[in-house]
């Protein structure tokens, strides 16, 4: 793993220095006509795919500012004026605000909990020899491959028997449990790359095992923790199946449930602009996280892919 990390960084550096050499070799020999057509075609395809990626979302944002009339009469046009009251209506009347708060509470608490638990498990699995270690490791990793819907029915009854249907902590615990496999898997390989000498030195100086973990290793693991936390945030904000089984009352539903409710209601209540405003509100945290961390997300993905 250590070598993989180094490899990734090295390749990236190599890749970034390359354009200069390219420039030189390119000047010696100009591109042929056939090559130019091919380049034109491939650049064209790249631009088209970029548009396909972005247009639906730009359209959603524009539509969120329109009146219902405008939505139907000029789907491609710009809104006549920027109506922010659509967002106010979505937040209050359509109760997107309530769902937004529910989602935020559950997702933030789950991410914090799963990062703490995941790091504890991963650290122990990566740094200590003890009987049953491999069994525990594979039990966690195996959880990544099983589809959730297979567990759905029994899970519903377990949560019901614990009296946790329609509670924040019920969904938080379930989210945490289902995010553990991914978290443990990635953090275990991450902790293996960290130098153990520091923790050992700290323990020689009288630090306890737990003290070495919280004071030395956890701060050292920060880059890995951030990557995994972002993935967990995006994944759990996205989650739909688990809350569908656990959050039954409208007071506790999360944003993804709320939006589908709103979408199916819109048919007869016809407040389309509020629905689109609701979509944009729900998308906002994701866009913020992505914009802030997109390099980290893609690097995390690449490291995972090359292992």
């Amino acid at each position: 793993m250590n070598q993989t990390d180094a490899g990734v960084i090295e390749t990236r550096e190599r890749a970034s220095t390359l354009p200069t050499t390219t420039e030189r070799s390119g000047n010696a020999e100009g591109p042929t006509a056939g090559e130019r057509t091919l380049n034109l075609f491939s650049t064209g395809f790249l631009v088209v795919w970029a548009l396909i990626s972005l247009v639906p979302l730009v359209w959603a944002v524009l539509t969120a500012f329109k009146t219902d009339r405008e939505i139907f009469t000029s789907p491609w046009g710009l809104p006549g004026e920027w109506r922010f009251d659509n967002f106010v209506r979505a937040w209050t009347n359509a109760e997107i605000g309530k769902y937004f708060i529910n989602s935020t509470i559950v997702v933030v608490a789950s991410v914090v909990l799963v990062m703490l638990f995941g790091a504890m498990v991963a650290y122990v699995l990566a740094r200590y020899e003890f009987p049953g270690r491999n069994i525990i490791y594979y039990a966690f990793v195996g959880g990544m491959t099983f589809p959730i819907f297979l567990a759905l029915v029994p899970l519903f009854f377990i949560v019901q028997n614990l009296g946790m249907i329609d509670t924040y902590y019920g969904l938080i615990l379930v989210y945490t449990a289902y995010a553990l496999p991914f978290t443990v898997f990635f953090l275990t390989s991450f902790f293996r790359t960290l130098p153990g000498a520091l923790a050992e030195a700290a323990m020689l100086d009288g630090c306890s095992h737990a003290g070495a973990f919280f004071r030395i290793m956890l701060p050292l693991a920060k880059p890995g923790l951030i990557s995994v936390a972002i993935f967990n945030f995006l994944g759990l904000w996205n989650q739909f199946l688990l809350p569908l089984a656990i959050m039954k009352s409208t007071d506790y539903k999360v944003l993804s449930q709320g939006l589908t409710l709103l979408a199916s209601d819109t048919g007869y209540r016809s407040d389309w602009s509020a629905l689109f405003a609701g979509l944009v509100i729900a998308l906002l945290p994701v866009v913020v996280v992505y914009a802030a961390f997109q390099r980290k997300i893609q690097d995390g993905l690449s490291v995972g892919a090359l292992k």
């Binding site: 525990i136 029994p154 945490t176 449990a177 553990l180 306890s208």
Partner: peptide, 26 residues
């Protein structure tokens, strides 16, 4: 000394959660 107690204390809660909500439903 204390190593196994430490390991157990770090594993207990996450494992309990995992067994109750993930392993047992499957």
């Amino acid at each position: 000394y204390g190593k196994y107690r430490f390991i157990a204390s770090f594993l207990a809660l996450p494992l309990l959660l995992y067994v109750v909500f993930v392993v047992s439903p499957y």
